[in-house]
Simulated assay, not measured.
Amino acid sequence: MATSRRRAGTRSQLVLRGLPFAVMALVAVADLVAGPALAFLSLLTLGPTFASVSGSVRRTAAVGALALVICIPLAAYSGTLLTWQNNLTLATLISVTGASMLAAHLRLRRERELANVRLVAEAAQRVLLRPVPRRAGDVHLALSYTSAAAEAHIGGDLYEVVTTPMGVRLIVGDVQGKGLGAVETAAWVLGAFREAAYDQPDLVCVAQRVEATLTRHLGAESFVTAILAEIGDGELTLLNCGHPAPLMLRRDGHIELVTPPEESLPLGLSAMTSATPKPHTCTFGEQDQILFYTDGVIETRDPDGAFYPLIDRAELLNEGDPQQALDALREDLIDHAGGPLADDAAMLLLRRHGY
């Protein structure tokens, strides 16, 4: 699908580059056929106008000069050269070409600024959302992250996997809201988790450290849904804070949502309850898989409004390498949406292998 989008973009660029010349050719033919009775030459201004959409300043100027070269002989052929009407047409061509050159200059400057913003965003992504290890002990990991802010590449979803003295710990979360504020909140969560995961004895204490950080920085109605996990010997301990339940794919083909026995509030809302989130444990044996994801996955709709059927498509994760399998699921998700996603979508796949 990515290849087809690149091909479509290339075709669009070729069409835009050829459009000014095609338009001016049509205007020239129409003027020759109609004769002096109808004034088509003023439409030659479409040439530099269209050139400014995708061309450089020099290209726009060259197209404007070509429009003048076409206009003068046609005016001479029709006997209107040096008339007030033709002089007005020439003045209009020169003025529109100048305005189009300015528009092209401003467009190119905005494109350069956008390119710089994208470079900064990509650098921020590398710092904030670091690549996860491909393997942690006997567990293979795969990651997919698709931001709804296509030009920025980053959003409010977050993830991290760290190896600690207590074992491999991870977090997958989703910040309420969008934009730079969501990215800033994600940075606070990840910073607190990376520090707490190394020195806290259990996931409850890790969650409390993250909660304390959010309490200092977030407003009263802001929150982060998250799920924390710790990989053990043949088992997995989960602490779900208002996040979508992960999807477990058993070796025997059984698929189930790993729902917590008790619902817990998202991080940042501790003031609303005195209850402490309770972790729960599930078996995680050889060849078992578990998929952590954000709500951008299950809330993706197709053009008819139907939600993405994650459980029905989970069989895609059984094929080949974990990363290839997760990439196939991501492509299927984008195909289901039929275009850009409406929300960020992060997926983290864990597959347990024997040594």
Rank of each mutant, 00 (worst) to 15 (best):
T3Q: 04
T3S: 05
T3M: 07
R7Q: 05
T10C: 11
Q13P: 01
L14W: 15
L14I: 12
L14E: 15
V15Y: 02
L16M: 05
G18N: 00
A22T: 11
V23A: 12
V23M: 10
A25E: 09
A30D: 05
A34L: 12
P36G: 01
L38H: 03
A39K: 06
L41T: 08
S42F: 11
L43M: 11
A51R: 00
S52L: 04
S56R: 00
G64Y: 00
L66E: 13
A67Q: 01
V69N: 08
T83S: 11
N86W: 04
T89N: 13
T92S: 12
I94V: 06
S95G: 06
M101F: 03
L102F: 02
A103W: 00
L108R: 00
R109L: 01
V117M: 14
L119R: 14
V120K: 02
E122P: 06
A123Y: 03
A123K: 05
A124K: 00
R126K: 08
R130C: 12
P131H: 06
R135H: 11
A136E: 09
L141F: 10
A150M: 14
G156C: 12
D157L: 10
P165W: 01
G167D: 02
G173V: 05
G177I: 08
K178E: 06
V183I: 09
L190D: 07
G191W: 09
E195P: 05
A196E: 13
Y198R: 14
D199L: 13
D199F: 15
V204P: 01
C205Q: 15
C205A: 15
C205R: 15
V206F: 06
V206M: 09
A207H: 02
A212R: 11
A212Y: 10
T215R: 02
H217Y: 15
H217P: 06
S222V: 08
S222Q: 15
V224W: 04
T225K: 10
I227K: 07
A229C: 07
I231H: 06
D233G: 00
L239V: 00
C241F: 00
M248A: 12
L249S: 01
L249E: 00
R250F: 07
R250P: 02
D252Q: 07
G253R: 05
I255K: 01
E256P: 11
S264E: 12
P266T: 13
A271R: 06
S274D: 13
A275E: 14
K278L: 03
K278G: 01
T281A: 10
C282I: 15
C282K: 15
E286L: 02
L291A: 15
D295E: 15
G296P: 05
E299M: 13
D304N: 13
Y308H: 05
P309T: 06
A314F: 07
A314Y: 08
A314K: 02
G320P: 04
A325C: 07
R330M: 11
A337S: 14
G339S: 01
G339K: 03
P340G: 08
A346L: 12
